[in-house]
Design a protein around this nucleic acid. Sequence first.
DNA 1: CGCATAATTGATGGTTATCAAGACCAGTGG
DNA 2: CCACTGGTCTTGATAACCATCAATTATGCG
Lengths: 268, 268
Amino acid sequence: MTHYEDPFYRLPSIPASFMSTYQRSCLVCYLKHYIDLSDVDQGLIAELEQEERSVTARERVLSGGDAVRMLFVIKSGWLFQDTDLADGRRHLVRTLLPGDVYGLGELSNTHASTHLTACTDAVICPFPKAALSTIILRSPRLAALLLDLSARDQVLYVDRLRAASRMSAKSRVLSLLLTMLDRLRVTGEGRGDAMDLPLNQSEIGDLLGLTNVSVSKAMVELQQSGVIERRRSRVTLLDRLAAAESVDHVDRYSSLDTAWFPDPSATG
Amino acid sequence: MTHYEDPFYRLPSIPASFMSTYQRSCLVCYLKHYIDLSDVDQGLIAELEQEERSVTARERVLSGGDAVRMLFVIKSGWLFQDTDLADGRRHLVRTLLPGDVYGLGELSNTHASTHLTACTDAVICPFPKAALSTIILRSPRLAALLLDLSARDQVLYVDRLRAASRMSAKSRVLSLLLTMLDRLRVTGEGRGDAMDLPLNQSEIGDLLGLTNVSVSKAMVELQQSGVIERRRSRVTLLDRLAAAESVDHVDRYSSLDTAWFPDPSATG
DNA sequence: CGCATAATTGATGGTTATCAAGACCAGTGG
DNA sequence: CCACTGGTCTTGATAACCATCAATTATGCG
């Protein structure tokens, strides 16, 4: 059994090196969970966050069809990628939390396939697509890490695809909550098994392929059956491991396979 | 309007350079559609296909949970990645056609998250995960291309996620057919708008989140409304562009954004 | 307090799942 | 040639689940 399959696996606590020279770089903090970063690496990443842009809740940062010139490191706040469907409905493609990078999934597109919308007030750091070339040239290990992150995003989509295809409304909502807790734990924001969910039920529905009504009913049921507690936008999972078991949930954020990476001594 | 949005966009015909030194490398043929490959690049890729392994239809090549030591270039035949659900049903994660690479989406996993099953007789070329490190070190442009391919796989999952979340059974089946035709056109196997589909309706159902019964009904309807023709396993789209329009289908295979790639002169 | 947004609740209908039976087809062997 | 076989596909009946619609209640903010 690998730790991927181990319901009792727990993420190691945040190392002391967390507070480094580049502590202000969200992405450095995030990536340090997965590999040791050389000074060169940290410098390369920190450069991506040279510029900052503040956006306000509900602001549309990018529209589908726009040329994708810049990618964004999310420094604070939540955003999501969404598209409009022909019949007027909306599909929420993914959410973006601090430490996430918008655009790794749009690399192959010259034009954005989705909108990018701020969910809460947020700070994002734009950097040009071509900055990834610099990273590839200068740091093979970071290049490998980028591939790994892209692969993980694929796995996450696969998980959601299975959920949307084959799971009940209640299970889908529960899966979402579990995944969100996993994500928050990476950056240390997740304290215990509770979280603030800045998405309303219509947005959750658009994320899961449900209506706001079904989301409401699913959450009421989850609450009444003692799986979750709610107060305002705060949701608490009362028994996270049991919940994870019940929907075959796997934590995709606890670690990445980095064994295949180039040797740290190798330079690009 | 970009060509992504242009329903009349057609893939440029296969360039003469198709017949190169490495013509026996499936992947070289495939990738040449997207960027010019230097001799070094072609050598690196061809090395991935040094070894060959033949598998027979229905053979399970890899089981979920197995350590992922090797990735595979698909040289001929069809395969798919599938998982078993808790209730005994099956989910088909993706299909793999010649030129595809199994494992780019499993890079971040030490152990396979899905089974790998041969759909028809097939020839696959195993290569170690670490070979990607070599590519990253030696060819920045290929590294960028790998990132691009991974990004495109993400986009494809997003398309399917939207379909599974919000589209009718009939539209989902039609979307699948359109995507398959797009894929076959890259390697030149797709002649016109007809194809042989080596998947039975249960497999199509597991791919789309439907039952075999719903797939059957959807296909009968598509046939009766004059959208498709069927004979045995052969399916023909009678008006591909109109069909694509009707389900908001976008060809993700016609091109990739490679403008952000490192300069060809740059060496890793 | 009053307004706007969000969440809940109940009634109804549509789409697909489920179940079951039969048709079709290719291959096999008597 | 024909019966038999196993797989696949089709068809119809029923049921489950979620969407949709509409009305009400709750929440948050000025």
